[in-house]
Design a protein around this nucleic acid. Sequence first.
RNA 1: GUGGGUGUAGCUCAACUGGUUAGAGCACCUGUUUGUGGCACAGGAGGCUGUGGGUUCAAGUCCCAUCACUCACCCCA
Length: 419
Amino acid sequence: MNQIRSIKGTHDILPAQSKDWQDLENQIHKTANLYGYQEIRTPIIENATLFNRGVGQETDIVSKEMYSWDDKDKSTISLRPEMTASVVRSYIQHNLGSNSLLQRLYYIGPSFRRERPQKGRQRQFHQFGVEAIGSNNPEQDAEVISLGWSVLKSFGIDNLELKISSIGSHNCRDNFKTKLISYLDPFINQLSEVSQRRLKKNPLRILDTKNDQEKQILKSAPKIEEFYTNDDKNYFLKVQQYINDLGIPFKIDPLLVRGLDYYTQTTFEISSKDLGAQDALLGGGRYNGLIKALGGKDTPAVGFAAGMERVLIAAKKRKKPKNKTLCIYAICTHDESLGILQRSSEKLRNLGIKVVCETLRRSMRSQMREANKCNADFAIIIGEEEFFNKTIQIKNLSEGKQESIKYQDLITYFKSLTF
RNA sequence: GUGGGUGUAGCUCAACUGGUUAGAGCACCUGUUUGUGGCACAGGAGGCUGUGGGUUCAAGUCCCAUCACUCACCCCA
Protein backbone atom coordinates (compact mmCIF):
# COMPACT_ATOMS: atom_id res chain seq x y z
CA MET A 1 0.00 0.00 0.00
CA ASN A 2 1.84 3.08 -1.15
CA GLN A 3 0.99 6.31 0.53
CA ILE A 4 -0.92 9.03 -1.18
CA ARG A 5 1.18 12.03 -2.06
CA SER A 6 0.28 15.48 -3.27
CA ILE A 7 -0.10 15.63 -7.03
CA LYS A 8 3.01 16.31 -9.07
CA GLY A 9 3.81 19.98 -9.16
CA THR A 10 1.55 20.86 -6.23
CA HIS A 11 2.89 21.65 -2.82
CA ASP A 12 1.67 21.90 0.74
CA ILE A 13 2.45 25.12 2.48
CA LEU A 14 3.47 23.85 5.90
CA PRO A 15 3.30 25.75 9.19
CA ALA A 16 7.00 26.54 9.00
CA GLN A 17 6.38 28.40 5.74
CA SER A 18 2.93 29.83 6.18
CA LYS A 19 4.10 32.88 8.09
CA ASP A 20 6.11 33.96 5.06
CA TRP A 21 3.02 33.60 2.91
CA GLN A 22 0.97 35.67 5.32
CA ASP A 23 3.66 38.35 5.35
CA LEU A 24 3.67 38.47 1.57
CA GLU A 25 -0.11 38.56 1.36
CA ASN A 26 -0.23 41.37 3.92
CA GLN A 27 2.33 43.34 1.98
CA ILE A 28 0.33 42.93 -1.21
CA HIS A 29 -2.90 44.09 0.44
CA LYS A 30 -1.13 46.99 2.04
CA THR A 31 0.65 48.24 -1.06
CA ALA A 32 -2.34 47.77 -3.35
CA ASN A 33 -4.45 49.77 -0.94
CA LEU A 34 -1.89 52.54 -0.83
CA TYR A 35 -2.31 52.83 -4.60
CA GLY A 36 -6.10 52.77 -4.37
CA TYR A 37 -6.59 49.28 -5.78
CA GLN A 38 -9.41 47.05 -4.57
CA GLU A 39 -9.33 43.31 -4.28
CA ILE A 40 -11.38 41.12 -6.60
CA ARG A 41 -11.85 37.39 -6.08
CA THR A 42 -13.06 35.22 -8.91
CA PRO A 43 -13.75 31.48 -9.12
CA ILE A 44 -10.95 29.05 -9.79
CA ILE A 45 -13.02 27.30 -12.48
CA GLU A 46 -14.36 29.03 -15.56
CA ASN A 47 -15.77 28.09 -18.92
CA ALA A 48 -12.95 26.89 -21.13
CA THR A 49 -14.13 29.34 -23.77
CA LEU A 50 -13.03 32.24 -21.62
CA PHE A 51 -9.40 31.22 -21.86
CA ASN A 52 -9.60 30.03 -25.44
CA ARG A 53 -10.76 33.48 -26.43
CA GLY A 54 -9.01 35.52 -23.77
CA VAL A 55 -5.57 34.00 -23.56
CA GLY A 56 -5.54 32.63 -27.08
CA GLN A 57 -6.13 29.24 -28.61
CA GLU A 58 -2.64 29.22 -30.10
CA THR A 59 -0.75 29.85 -26.90
CA ASP A 60 1.03 27.00 -25.15
CA ILE A 61 -0.87 27.81 -22.00
CA VAL A 62 -4.21 27.03 -23.56
CA SER A 63 -3.25 24.51 -26.21
CA LYS A 64 -1.27 22.16 -24.03
CA GLU A 65 -1.10 23.24 -20.42
CA MET A 66 -4.67 23.88 -19.39
CA TYR A 67 -6.62 21.51 -17.17
CA SER A 68 -10.04 21.09 -18.75
CA TRP A 69 -12.84 18.59 -18.52
CA ASP A 70 -16.39 18.14 -19.68
CA ASP A 71 -19.03 18.87 -17.10
CA LYS A 72 -22.25 16.87 -16.85
CA ASP A 73 -24.12 19.41 -18.95
CA LYS A 74 -21.50 18.98 -21.69
CA SER A 75 -19.98 22.40 -21.20
CA THR A 76 -16.20 22.42 -20.87
CA ILE A 77 -14.75 23.70 -17.65
CA SER A 78 -11.17 24.75 -17.04
CA LEU A 79 -9.04 25.40 -14.02
CA ARG A 80 -7.83 28.93 -14.58
CA PRO A 81 -4.31 29.05 -16.02
CA GLU A 82 -4.06 32.76 -15.20
CA MET A 83 -6.35 35.40 -13.80
CA THR A 84 -6.53 38.34 -16.16
CA ALA A 85 -9.18 36.71 -18.32
CA SER A 86 -11.27 35.96 -15.24
CA VAL A 87 -11.02 39.50 -13.94
CA VAL A 88 -12.02 40.89 -17.30
CA ARG A 89 -14.92 38.44 -17.50
CA SER A 90 -16.08 39.62 -14.12
CA TYR A 91 -15.61 43.24 -15.10
CA ILE A 92 -17.87 42.74 -18.10
CA GLN A 93 -20.41 40.51 -16.34
CA HIS A 94 -21.01 42.97 -13.51
CA ASN A 95 -20.66 46.04 -15.64
CA LEU A 96 -17.99 47.42 -13.34
CA GLY A 97 -17.15 50.04 -15.92
CA SER A 98 -20.43 51.77 -15.21
CA ASN A 99 -19.41 52.48 -11.62
CA SER A 100 -16.58 54.66 -12.73
CA LEU A 101 -14.44 55.11 -15.80
CA LEU A 102 -11.47 53.50 -14.15
CA GLN A 103 -11.36 50.29 -12.15
CA ARG A 104 -8.23 49.61 -10.17
CA LEU A 105 -8.31 45.94 -9.20
CA TYR A 106 -5.92 43.47 -7.65
CA TYR A 107 -6.08 39.76 -6.93
CA ILE A 108 -4.32 36.97 -5.10
CA GLY A 109 -4.84 33.26 -5.67
CA PRO A 110 -3.83 29.97 -7.25
CA SER A 111 -3.71 29.15 -10.95
CA PHE A 112 -3.00 25.87 -12.70
CA ARG A 113 -0.91 24.81 -15.64
CA ARG A 114 0.09 21.31 -16.55
CA GLU A 115 3.81 21.82 -17.08
CA ARG A 116 6.89 19.88 -16.08
CA PRO A 117 7.80 21.26 -12.68
CA GLN A 118 11.16 22.84 -12.01
CA LYS A 119 12.58 25.52 -9.77
CA GLY A 120 10.04 28.33 -9.60
CA ARG A 121 7.52 26.48 -11.70
CA GLN A 122 4.68 24.34 -10.43
CA ARG A 123 1.39 22.98 -11.65
CA GLN A 124 -0.51 24.78 -8.95
CA PHE A 125 1.10 28.13 -8.37
CA HIS A 126 -0.01 31.36 -6.78
CA GLN A 127 -0.15 34.72 -8.37
CA PHE A 128 -0.96 38.19 -7.32
CA GLY A 129 -1.59 40.85 -9.87
CA VAL A 130 -3.35 44.06 -10.71
CA GLU A 131 -5.53 45.21 -13.55
CA ALA A 132 -6.20 48.89 -14.19
CA ILE A 133 -9.13 48.94 -16.56
CA GLY A 134 -10.20 52.13 -18.28
CA SER A 135 -7.22 54.39 -18.80
CA ASN A 136 -5.33 54.59 -22.05
CA ASN A 137 -2.60 56.89 -20.84
CA PRO A 138 1.05 56.12 -20.23
CA GLU A 139 0.93 57.33 -16.63
CA GLN A 140 -1.35 54.39 -15.95
CA ASP A 141 1.27 51.98 -17.25
CA ALA A 142 3.85 53.65 -15.04
CA GLU A 143 1.57 53.45 -12.02
CA VAL A 144 1.03 49.72 -12.50
CA ILE A 145 4.75 49.10 -12.91
CA SER A 146 5.45 51.21 -9.87
CA LEU A 147 2.96 49.25 -7.81
CA GLY A 148 4.56 45.95 -8.75
CA TRP A 149 8.03 47.28 -8.10
CA SER A 150 6.92 48.63 -4.76
CA VAL A 151 5.43 45.34 -3.53
CA LEU A 152 8.65 43.51 -4.32
CA LYS A 153 10.87 46.18 -2.83
CA SER A 154 8.87 46.52 0.34
CA PHE A 155 8.95 42.77 0.77
CA GLY A 156 12.70 43.04 1.02
CA ILE A 157 13.81 41.88 -2.40
CA ASP A 158 16.83 43.56 -3.88
CA ASN A 159 18.61 42.65 -7.08
CA LEU A 160 15.55 43.42 -9.13
CA GLU A 161 15.72 44.14 -12.80
CA LEU A 162 12.95 45.86 -14.71
CA LYS A 163 12.81 45.35 -18.44
CA ILE A 164 10.31 47.19 -20.58
CA SER A 165 9.40 47.12 -24.20
CA SER A 166 6.65 48.05 -26.53
CA ILE A 167 5.16 45.77 -29.10
CA GLY A 168 3.19 48.64 -30.57
CA SER A 169 -0.38 48.82 -31.67
CA HIS A 170 -2.03 46.03 -33.62
CA ASN A 171 -1.19 47.50 -37.03
CA CYS A 172 2.39 48.01 -36.12
CA ARG A 173 2.71 44.49 -34.89
CA ASP A 174 1.13 43.05 -38.03
CA ASN A 175 3.48 44.98 -40.30
CA PHE A 176 6.44 43.95 -38.25
CA LYS A 177 5.34 40.35 -38.33
CA THR A 178 5.11 40.28 -42.10
CA LYS A 179 8.52 41.86 -42.54
CA LEU A 180 10.08 39.57 -39.98
CA ILE A 181 8.74 36.54 -41.77
CA SER A 182 10.07 37.64 -45.11
CA TYR A 183 13.43 38.43 -43.55
CA LEU A 184 13.70 35.05 -41.86
CA ASP A 185 12.39 33.02 -44.74
CA PRO A 186 15.73 32.68 -46.56
CA PHE A 187 17.32 31.44 -43.33
CA ILE A 188 14.71 28.84 -42.71
CA ASN A 189 17.11 25.92 -42.97
CA GLN A 190 19.37 27.42 -40.33
CA LEU A 191 16.56 27.77 -37.85
CA SER A 192 15.82 25.23 -35.18
CA GLU A 193 12.82 23.02 -35.53
CA VAL A 194 10.94 25.01 -32.91
CA SER A 195 11.67 28.29 -34.61
CA GLN A 196 10.60 26.93 -37.96
CA ARG A 197 7.29 26.03 -36.47
CA ARG A 198 7.04 29.41 -34.78
CA LEU A 199 7.72 31.18 -38.03
CA LYS A 200 4.34 29.97 -39.19
CA LYS A 201 2.40 30.22 -35.97
CA ASN A 202 3.90 32.98 -33.88
CA PRO A 203 6.97 34.57 -35.46
CA LEU A 204 7.42 37.16 -32.72
CA ARG A 205 8.31 34.39 -30.33
CA ILE A 206 11.46 33.64 -32.33
CA LEU A 207 12.86 36.86 -30.89
CA ASP A 208 12.98 35.09 -27.54
CA THR A 209 15.40 32.45 -28.78
CA LYS A 210 18.45 31.46 -26.78
CA ASN A 211 20.07 29.73 -29.74
CA ASP A 212 23.31 31.55 -30.63
CA GLN A 213 23.12 31.01 -34.34
CA GLU A 214 19.59 32.34 -34.41
CA LYS A 215 20.60 35.31 -32.31
CA GLN A 216 23.22 36.05 -34.93
CA ILE A 217 20.65 35.92 -37.71
CA LEU A 218 18.33 38.15 -35.75
CA LYS A 219 20.97 40.82 -35.35
CA SER A 220 20.20 42.36 -38.69
CA ALA A 221 16.53 41.47 -38.70
CA PRO A 222 13.97 44.27 -38.85
CA LYS A 223 13.34 45.83 -35.45
CA ILE A 224 9.95 46.38 -33.95
CA GLU A 225 10.72 50.05 -33.30
CA GLU A 226 11.01 50.64 -37.04
CA PHE A 227 7.31 49.96 -37.28
CA TYR A 228 6.05 52.11 -34.44
CA THR A 229 3.60 54.77 -35.45
CA ASN A 230 4.21 58.24 -34.04
CA ASP A 231 1.63 57.56 -31.39
CA ASP A 232 3.31 54.29 -30.44
CA LYS A 233 6.64 56.04 -30.22
CA ASN A 234 5.39 58.91 -28.10
CA TYR A 235 3.44 56.61 -25.86
CA PHE A 236 6.46 54.45 -25.15
CA LEU A 237 8.65 57.50 -24.54
CA LYS A 238 6.16 58.85 -22.05
CA VAL A 239 6.06 55.54 -20.18
CA GLN A 240 9.84 55.58 -19.95
CA GLN A 241 9.84 59.17 -18.78
CA TYR A 242 7.37 58.49 -15.99
CA ILE A 243 9.19 55.42 -14.78
CA ASN A 244 12.34 57.42 -14.82
CA ASP A 245 10.66 60.17 -12.83
CA LEU A 246 9.67 57.55 -10.28
CA GLY A 247 13.31 56.69 -9.85
CA ILE A 248 12.91 53.10 -10.97
CA PRO A 249 15.87 51.81 -12.96
CA PHE A 250 14.99 49.94 -16.14
CA LYS A 251 16.38 48.50 -19.30
CA ILE A 252 14.72 48.57 -22.67
CA ASP A 253 14.58 45.08 -24.04
CA PRO A 254 13.21 45.01 -27.57
CA LEU A 255 13.26 41.23 -27.50
CA LEU A 256 10.81 41.08 -24.63
CA VAL A 257 7.80 39.40 -26.13
CA ARG A 258 5.03 38.35 -23.83
CA GLY A 259 3.63 35.00 -24.81
CA LEU A 260 0.01 35.80 -24.34
CA ASP A 261 -1.99 37.00 -27.30
CA TYR A 262 -3.71 39.89 -25.64
CA TYR A 263 -0.82 42.28 -25.13
CA THR A 264 -0.50 45.58 -27.00
CA GLN A 265 1.91 48.49 -26.59
CA THR A 266 3.78 48.36 -23.31
CA THR A 267 5.12 45.07 -21.99
CA PHE A 268 7.36 44.66 -18.98
CA GLU A 269 8.99 42.13 -16.75
CA ILE A 270 10.71 42.23 -13.39
CA SER A 271 13.25 39.51 -12.80
CA SER A 272 15.65 38.50 -10.06
CA LYS A 273 19.06 36.86 -10.26
CA ASP A 274 18.29 34.88 -7.14
CA LEU A 275 16.08 32.51 -9.08
CA GLY A 276 17.00 29.71 -11.46
CA ALA A 277 16.16 29.59 -15.11
CA GLN A 278 12.66 30.83 -14.37
CA ASP A 279 13.77 34.24 -13.29
CA ALA A 280 10.68 36.32 -14.04
CA LEU A 281 9.00 37.42 -10.84
CA LEU A 282 6.43 39.58 -12.46
CA GLY A 283 5.29 40.18 -15.99
CA GLY A 284 2.62 42.20 -17.63
CA GLY A 285 1.66 44.88 -20.02
CA ARG A 286 -1.11 46.70 -21.75
CA TYR A 287 -3.97 44.76 -23.28
CA ASN A 288 -6.26 47.19 -25.02
CA GLY A 289 -8.10 44.66 -27.12
CA LEU A 290 -9.00 42.05 -24.55
CA ILE A 291 -12.15 43.49 -23.06
CA LYS A 292 -13.73 43.90 -26.45
CA ALA A 293 -12.56 40.48 -27.53
CA LEU A 294 -14.38 39.02 -24.55
CA GLY A 295 -17.59 40.80 -25.44
CA GLY A 296 -17.31 44.02 -23.47
CA LYS A 297 -17.08 47.58 -24.62
CA ASP A 298 -13.80 48.57 -26.20
CA THR A 299 -11.86 49.47 -23.06
CA PRO A 300 -8.14 49.97 -22.58
CA ALA A 301 -6.39 48.21 -19.71
CA VAL A 302 -2.98 47.46 -18.27
CA GLY A 303 -1.88 45.01 -15.62
CA PHE A 304 0.61 42.46 -14.41
CA ALA A 305 0.80 39.11 -12.70
CA ALA A 306 3.51 37.99 -10.30
CA GLY A 307 4.44 34.51 -9.18
CA MET A 308 4.28 34.29 -5.41
CA GLU A 309 6.40 31.15 -5.11
CA ARG A 310 9.10 32.90 -7.10
CA VAL A 311 8.78 36.01 -5.00
CA LEU A 312 9.28 33.93 -1.89
CA ILE A 313 12.35 32.23 -3.37
CA ALA A 314 13.82 35.62 -4.24
CA ALA A 315 12.99 36.90 -0.76
CA LYS A 316 14.84 34.11 1.06
CA LYS A 317 17.45 36.56 2.23
CA ARG A 318 15.07 39.23 3.50
CA LYS A 319 15.15 40.07 7.15
CA LYS A 320 11.89 39.03 8.64
CA PRO A 321 9.98 41.42 10.84
CA LYS A 322 9.46 40.11 14.34
CA ASN A 323 6.40 41.62 15.90
CA LYS A 324 5.84 39.22 18.72
CA THR A 325 2.62 39.32 20.68
CA LEU A 326 2.39 38.42 24.32
CA CYS A 327 2.03 34.68 24.76
CA ILE A 328 0.99 32.58 27.72
CA TYR A 329 1.24 28.84 28.15
CA ALA A 330 -1.44 27.50 30.47
CA ILE A 331 -0.31 24.60 32.62
CA CYS A 332 -2.47 22.30 34.67
CA THR A 333 -1.46 19.39 36.87
CA HIS A 334 -4.84 18.83 38.45
CA ASP A 335 -7.62 17.36 36.33
CA GLU A 336 -10.40 19.01 38.35
CA SER A 337 -8.94 22.39 37.43
CA LEU A 338 -8.88 21.95 33.66
CA GLY A 339 -12.20 23.73 33.26
CA ILE A 340 -11.06 26.71 35.31
CA LEU A 341 -7.92 26.96 33.24
CA GLN A 342 -9.82 26.96 29.99
CA ARG A 343 -12.23 29.60 31.25
CA SER A 344 -9.45 31.90 32.38
CA SER A 345 -7.58 31.35 29.14
CA GLU A 346 -10.64 32.44 27.25
CA LYS A 347 -10.83 35.64 29.29
CA LEU A 348 -7.19 36.38 28.60
CA ARG A 349 -7.70 35.82 24.90
CA ASN A 350 -10.46 38.40 25.03
CA LEU A 351 -7.75 40.84 26.06
CA GLY A 352 -5.92 39.95 22.87
CA ILE A 353 -3.35 37.76 24.52
CA LYS A 354 -2.32 34.51 22.90
CA VAL A 355 -2.94 31.63 25.28
CA VAL A 356 -2.01 28.03 24.57
CA CYS A 357 -3.53 25.43 26.87
CA GLU A 358 -2.02 22.07 27.71
CA THR A 359 -4.31 19.25 26.61
CA LEU A 360 -2.01 16.28 27.01
CA ARG A 361 -2.08 16.13 30.84
CA ARG A 362 1.66 15.70 30.92
CA SER A 363 4.00 16.09 33.84
CA MET A 364 4.82 19.54 35.15
CA ARG A 365 8.27 19.24 33.71
CA SER A 366 7.02 18.38 30.23
CA GLN A 367 4.53 21.19 30.30
CA MET A 368 7.21 23.68 31.30
CA ARG A 369 9.39 22.42 28.50
CA GLU A 370 6.52 22.89 26.10
CA ALA A 371 5.99 26.44 27.36
CA ASN A 372 9.60 27.16 26.68
CA LYS A 373 9.53 25.54 23.27
CA CYS A 374 6.63 27.60 22.04
CA ASN A 375 8.39 30.72 23.17
CA ALA A 376 5.80 31.80 25.72
CA ASP A 377 6.43 34.88 27.82
CA PHE A 378 4.49 33.55 30.79
CA ALA A 379 3.29 30.27 32.16
CA ILE A 380 0.19 30.25 34.30
CA ILE A 381 -0.15 27.22 36.50
CA ILE A 382 -3.02 25.63 38.33
CA GLY A 383 -2.48 22.51 40.40
CA GLU A 384 -4.18 20.92 43.33
CA GLU A 385 -2.92 23.45 45.82
CA GLU A 386 -3.98 26.43 43.75
CA PHE A 387 -7.35 24.83 43.21
CA PHE A 388 -8.08 24.76 46.93
CA ASN A 389 -6.58 28.19 47.63
CA LYS A 390 -8.32 29.76 44.65
CA THR A 391 -4.98 31.05 43.42
CA ILE A 392 -2.95 30.76 40.26
CA GLN A 393 0.81 30.75 39.74
CA ILE A 394 2.25 33.14 37.22
CA LYS A 395 5.77 32.53 36.02
CA ASN A 396 7.64 35.04 33.96
CA LEU A 397 9.66 32.81 31.69
CA SER A 398 12.27 35.31 30.61
CA GLU A 399 13.06 36.41 34.16
CA GLY A 400 12.35 33.13 35.86
CA LYS A 401 10.35 34.79 38.61
CA GLN A 402 7.16 33.28 39.84
CA GLU A 403 4.36 34.65 41.95
CA SER A 404 1.06 33.44 43.24
CA ILE A 405 -2.01 35.62 42.81
CA LYS A 406 -5.66 35.28 43.60
CA TYR A 407 -7.56 33.68 40.76
CA GLN A 408 -9.91 36.70 40.60
CA ASP A 409 -6.94 39.05 40.02
CA LEU A 410 -5.70 37.21 36.93
CA ILE A 411 -7.31 39.48 34.38
CA THR A 412 -6.22 42.73 35.99
CA TYR A 413 -2.70 41.34 36.30
CA PHE A 414 -2.37 40.86 32.57
CA LYS A 415 -4.47 43.85 31.65
CA SER A 416 -1.84 46.08 33.21
CA LEU A 417 0.82 44.38 31.09
CA THR A 418 -0.86 44.82 27.75
CA PHE A 419 -1.44 48.55 27.99
C1' G B 1 6.62 16.32 -24.53
C1' U B 2 12.58 15.85 -24.40
C1' G B 3 17.20 15.39 -21.68
C1' G B 4 20.53 15.23 -17.16
C1' G B 5 21.03 14.36 -11.73
C1' U B 6 19.41 12.07 -7.16
C1' G B 7 16.66 8.37 -3.98
C1' U B 8 19.52 5.47 3.37
C1' A B 9 15.38 7.81 10.25
C1' G B 10 10.94 13.75 10.46
C1' C B 11 15.52 16.88 8.54
C1' U B 12 21.00 17.02 7.03
C1' C B 13 24.19 13.27 5.89
C1' A B 14 27.76 8.55 7.03
C1' A B 15 28.58 3.17 5.91
C1' C B 16 36.60 1.71 2.65
C1' U B 17 37.36 -2.03 -3.17
C1' G B 18 30.01 -5.97 -2.17
C1' G B 19 31.19 -8.92 4.03
C1' U B 20 28.41 -9.27 11.25
C1' U B 21 22.58 -6.71 14.20
C1' A B 22 22.70 0.02 8.54
C1' G B 23 25.22 4.66 12.01
C1' A B 24 25.83 10.11 13.55
C1' G B 25 24.15 15.19 14.33
C1' C B 26 19.69 18.04 14.76
C1' A B 27 14.56 17.42 15.94
C1' C B 28 11.15 14.23 19.00
C1' C B 29 9.93 11.50 23.78
C1' U B 30 11.24 10.06 29.00
C1' G B 31 14.20 10.66 33.12
C1' U B 32 18.42 13.21 36.44
C1' U B 33 14.41 11.91 44.27
C1' U B 34 8.38 12.10 43.08
C1' G B 35 5.01 20.46 41.39
C1' U B 36 8.83 23.99 37.42
C1' G B 37 11.52 25.58 31.29
C1' G B 38 16.20 26.99 28.69
C1' C B 39 22.02 24.47 29.73
C1' A B 40 24.25 19.77 30.77
C1' C B 41 23.98 14.54 31.38
C1' A B 42 21.59 9.56 30.84
C1' G B 43 18.27 6.70 28.28
C1' G B 44 14.33 5.77 24.50
C1' A B 45 11.56 5.66 20.13
C1' G B 46 12.08 6.05 15.02
C1' G B 47 14.56 2.47 8.70
C1' C B 48 11.78 -3.95 4.58
C1' U B 49 18.13 1.55 2.42
C1' G B 50 11.78 4.48 -3.08
C1' U B 51 9.59 -0.18 -5.39
C1' G B 52 10.14 -4.83 -8.29
C1' G B 53 13.36 -8.14 -10.56
C1' G B 54 18.45 -10.02 -11.52
C1' U B 55 23.97 -11.29 -10.53
C1' U B 56 26.41 -13.42 -6.05
C1' C B 57 27.86 -17.84 -0.72
C1' A B 58 26.65 -12.63 0.51
C1' A B 59 23.64 -6.37 -2.13
C1' G B 60 22.45 0.08 0.99
C1' U B 61 26.74 -0.89 -2.32
C1' C B 62 26.86 -4.08 -8.94
C1' C B 63 23.08 -4.67 -13.32
C1' C B 64 17.99 -3.94 -15.39
C1' A B 65 13.23 -2.02 -14.98
C1' U B 66 9.79 1.11 -12.64
C1' C B 67 8.19 5.11 -9.63
C1' A B 68 9.18 9.57 -7.17
C1' C B 69 11.83 13.94 -6.47
C1' U B 70 14.96 17.55 -8.73
C1' C B 71 17.38 20.67 -12.46
C1' A B 72 17.34 22.16 -17.45
C1' C B 73 14.99 22.54 -22.54
C1' C B 74 10.17 24.33 -24.10
C1' C B 75 6.95 28.02 -22.15
C1' C B 76 5.81 31.32 -18.48
C1' A B 77 4.58 34.11 -13.08
